[in-house]
Design a protein around this nucleic acid. Structure first.
Lengths: 390, 390
DNA sequence: CTGAAAGCGCTAACAG
DNA sequence: CTGTTAGCGCTTTCAG
């Protein structure tokens, strides 16, 4: 039975004859490094089955007898065979890979999200291709998506994009897209979103401060362009509005501790400031440092809430009250839905679910300093103009 | 390569057809989502040239007249053509992609390194595939490398691996490998290493403390299994040894601030401790918190040096003296060498160069408290700056 | 349950 | 400078 196979197509001038001396070694495929990598037909021959059967085994297709399957697997093992993904992609039109576009920063949020995505993707059996964008990068998002499309991914994840002018992707995207924590910047047949609820988390943070008795809460915002910043801003504003509080002017930062520090000096000068909600922990830490240097104690004089719950948040001085974002849950759910969309093009997308809010209260927040009795506060701020603290 | 899509393109109106029902998809290609993606032969036809010429244009091969090139590009643009990477990889045996194996953590070092690698890889024209390992993951490194090989990468970057039992990759790796900050866990035709010098940085950190007048320096180490931890440990020990100082017992942590905090309580109990070199900033921060809670002031009573220079390091209380790792430089140089090895299999690998040492002195370090008259330590004036290195 | 034939879209020699 | 001829190693029909 083997003989037949032998005389068919491919074996013509077989294996080891090396084409011309181009300088490379071994069959064009760089893979083997030394001897040519085995192909499924080699496995088939060794196992005494057809090439197609090998294919079946490696694709977990049904209708292969246990015995044949075992033989094939053994032969493959013996030869050190591995599926050639390029050939597979070419023949099937699917690459079994998912691309992710992420901000080229080492910011905690995006970085953590990326790790989460990777972990989940792997479980789904897809490979991950990563492309970074940098803020202000002209080609930015469009270029990133484009290069992913060039690579031939089956789906795309866009993680925490920025709202940049011209940031919309005009490229024709033919695969499903998952956008995390933002509205979609692309038009594609299927666009899913995940995350969301950031505004509610921001609102919870703000309300925590309000509940403590602060008359109002100031906000140290992230860069205007970031949706992540916009969401927090909105949540903060909503909390204030729904409690009928005055909405103080927003102070802006760039996510860095240094910017929080700068903003802190500004805020420290205003005695009306007794509570600040910072859009991320780094800025909160910079802010606290500035406040401290200015002689305003945290939390006795000013309360500060951060956002993210970075690993050190609980160990800085004072331990930071913050909101933990459910990155893993978001990544997991989003990807599940993306994969579903990839594999079931006609089916309705799976619905999104809402993440829980995880406010971590530590020691950077406290009731506001007493207003009329300077007894306890060593360096009491000048008294605020008005308003009772609930 | 591939110019592609700016704004002008094609309004062929025809893009997002729904994928056809059932299995009746016309040409197998999943790519376009519905209407078949144009192939190079289509472009050729439209441009009135041979398919091979289209290939030449898209590969920036020489010997194509400017006129023909222009016509091809125009035709391609009009059709919305993009090279099919799977076919290309299959035919050429190269995928033009590089795989990265990284620790599945959000630790600052690995995460930053990954970002750096991505940035550089993109400039080289290669695509990036990422796989995470998790500490303690049984399949760990071997599984990660294996899956990368399955995907068919042209080269592999292993970032800060751990020294795990059975962590060596026994798989046949046929492509060049770059190992960052560790000895190589794989056997491959070409193995490059990058990073290194971590021990020297640790040594500089320790010597800074010694120079300040401390009798000895304690070390809060990272997990034993991590090469990153081992290097710091060695540097510390070497510094002590070369100054003829006593080498105190090592206290161990797991990189987390929480572990630094725990270790801090231990260390605080020992009055002989006046200087500690922590293996990373997170642990240093936890350590400082514990020290402070125990009534030992930093830096008046105890000096602390961290490692990494995480973004908030300069803004915690007190601002942390630490060593900044040159992640970007390491990534850049390492990748340049890896790509060189990929593209010039026979040539000798490019030599590695040494990174400078960047000690950032802030306010967490000071001379030791006077030996006989406790209680009067004053804040030493320190200022940010770059220590000179070796 | 298994096999044979026919490409997927591109690059690789080797002519012209 | 440009075209021709062969496959790369799989997955897909479609037959047994």
């Amino acid at each position: 039975m083997v003989a037949l196979t032998e005389s068919t197509t491919t074996d013509f001038a077989f294996d080891f004859d090396r084409p011309p001396p181009g300088g490379t070694m071994t069959r064009g495929t760089g893979r083997g490094g030394g001897s040519a990598a085995p192909r499924s037909v080699d496995v088939a021959r060794l196992a005494g089955v057809s090439q197609k059967t090998v294919s079946r085994v490696f694709n977990d297709e049904p209708y292969v007898s246990a015995d044949v399957r075992r033989r094939v697997l053994e032969a493959a093992e013996q030869l050190g065979y591995r599926l050639n993904n390029a050939a597979r992609a070419l023949a099937s039109g699917r690459t079994r890979s998912i691309g992710v576009v992420t901000l080229g920063t080492a910011l905690y949020g995006p970085a953590t999200l990326l790790m989460g995505v990777e972990r989940v993707v792997r479980d789904t059996g897809y490979a991950l291709r990563v492309v970074n964008t940098m803020e202000g990068d002209p080609a930015g998002m469009a270029g990133a998506v484009d290069s992913l499309l060039d690579q031939g991914v089956d789906g795309i994840v866009i993680s925490e994009p920025i709202d940049e002018p011209g940031g919309d992707v005009s490229v024709r995207v033919g695969v499903p897209v998952l956008v995390i924590n933002a509205p979609s910047p692309v038009a594609a047949p299927t666009v899913l979103t995940a995350g969301g609820g950031v505004d509610l988390m921001a609102r919870a943070a703000t309300e925590h401060l309000l509940d403590l008795g602060h008359a109002t809460v100031h906000h140290l915002a992230g860069p205007r362009r970031w949706y992540a910043a916009q969401d927090r801003l909105e949540g903060w504003r909503a909390a204030l509005a729904s409690h009928g509080r005055e909405v103080p002017p927003v102070v802006g930062g760039d996510w860095s501790a240094a910017s929080g520090y700068a903003a802190g000096h500004e805020l420290a000068a205003d005695p009306a400031v007794t509570a600040v909600f910072a859009a991320n922990d780094d800025m909160a830490i910079g802010l606290i440092r500035a406040l401290t240097e200015a002689g305003r104690r945290v939390p006795e004089d000013v309360s500060v809430v951060g956002f993210d719950d970075i690993p050190v948040a609980g160990f800085v001085t004072p331990p930071l009250t913050t909101v933990r974002q459910p990155f893993d849950a978001v990544a997991q759910e989003g990807l599940k839905r993306l994969v579903h969309a990839i594999e079931n093009p006609q089916a309705d997308p799976l619905p999104a679910s809402n993440a829980p809010i995880d406010l971590v209260v530590r020691s950077s927040t406290a009731p506001p300093p007493p207003r009329t009795t300077p007894g306890r506060a060593r360096r009491a701020a000048t008294r605020p103009g008005q308003g009772a603290g609930i």
